[in-house]
Design a protein around this nucleic acid. Sequence first.
RNA 1: UCCCCGCAUCGAGAU
Length: 315
Amino acid sequence: GSSCNFLVQALAKSQKYELTLKVYNRMTHLAILPTFLSFSALVDCFVHTHKPQFAIGVVGLILKRGYSVSVYIVNVILKGLCQIGEVFKAMELLHDLDRNVVLLDTVSFNTLIKGLCKAKKLEQALNLRFEMDSANCCPNVVTYTILMDGLCKEGRVDEAMGLLDEMRMKGLDVDVVAYGALISGFCRNGDVDRGIKLFNEMLGKGISPNVVTYTCVMNGLCKMGKWKEATAMLNAMTDCGIRPDVVTYTGLIDGLCKDGRATKAMELLNLMIEKSEEPSNITYNALINGLCKEGLVIDALKILEMMMAKGKKPD
RNA sequence: UCCCCGCAUCGAGAU
């Protein structure tokens, strides 16, 4: 009995979900009672295999066995529902859960808010920050980051800045991720100047930018055709001890390609390989696209061959 | 049983 339970837990932890389910089924046929941890493992399986509905069923089993449901399990299910686009099912679950069954926490609400943002239900997402407050779950820096990001992605950057003020009024510390959401928002909306202003404000507060922060600004610069400044930032970040990653390089490569400088982009590909940063399919796609647009088909073919040689499947 | 600490569940970047 306990060996089956351990097996189920171990399999789930090593992400062998299908196998976990098989073992679980077998053990129930053998009339072995699952422990609480096995139920948790089962929930993980259903969520990771995109069947969160079944995970809700497991919650029922847990209660039937007399165990109590942890907020962790609920949060995993909420996330799973949001991921398959069932935000409203998630909302239902949130409201149906009796306070006696489990006390929701800030993570539960944040998960829902993120799901609503992804489903473009911004107003509902924004309202949920008040509702959570009255459920004794204080909005935190993550809550505000999700909302600011959601607003920025809808082009509502000024409202996002309003939320920045609001979170400050609540005494919440703005961290590098929160700044990143706003910086990315401005840069994406073609307002690099304001993005850089925030970047500097952040520096002034003693918060160190990370690779994501730099990448956002560089992409903004590229979008404005300022690839020289973007390249300068690549050096600046390296000098600060921050290592550009595949996303950073890809953004620059794409920026150069969009500006008709595919040859320069090729140099950058070589640079990243030199620095042992592995290009991704997205990197290759951006470059091949740029080369083709400039009629450099031979070079594009070379890149394609390079991909294949590395065992990557062109898409 | 209690406490502490880790590990799991929520947030920003590329075609």
